[in-house]
Amino acid sequence: MNKTLGLVARAKTGDSEAFQMLMHQEKANLYKMAFVYTRNEEDALEVFQETVYKALISISTVKDDQYFTTWLTRILINTAIAYLAKKRKVISLSKDMIENIRDTEGVRLEERIDLLEAMGELEEKYVTVLLLRFYKDYSVKQIAAFLDCPEGTVKTNIHRGLTLLRKKLKGEYFHERKNSCL
């Protein structure tokens, strides 16, 4: 953590080597989140590139270095949503993409494609809260602060997002307990 803070401080002064190191630390997470929104490599790479660019030209505006990752995640999410809004077209997994997944991982292919498809069919507000809650491990309170909206709205969107996902996946992967803290 201290090393990351040091890198952020250096990157803010214009040290581009430090900036690159930060991007290499974050690249996999950024790409995966971009992919959840776009559901194809080409678009996810576009979103990633635009995110790196925006981060580079505005890193000096990071107010609190310890929230660098949060700041970067916000850029990625805003960029992905804006990108999709611009694109607004039906995206489907191509054969190449399916082959790529099979070649790379080889297991539980159908499950993953189902889930990626299902996530991609959700409204962006649900994708965002689910990513922040279950991938980035943010608390409801943190998500509310991140999105600048009431905690109740966050809870509702997480609940609805999960319900929609469960419907799409026929309850196969998400087994919600009655006493869920959501």
Partner: peptide, 11 residues
Amino acid sequence: AYKEQVDRIPV
């Protein structure tokens, strides 16, 4: 489940 699925996206 969610984390695992997202983590498995090829990078």
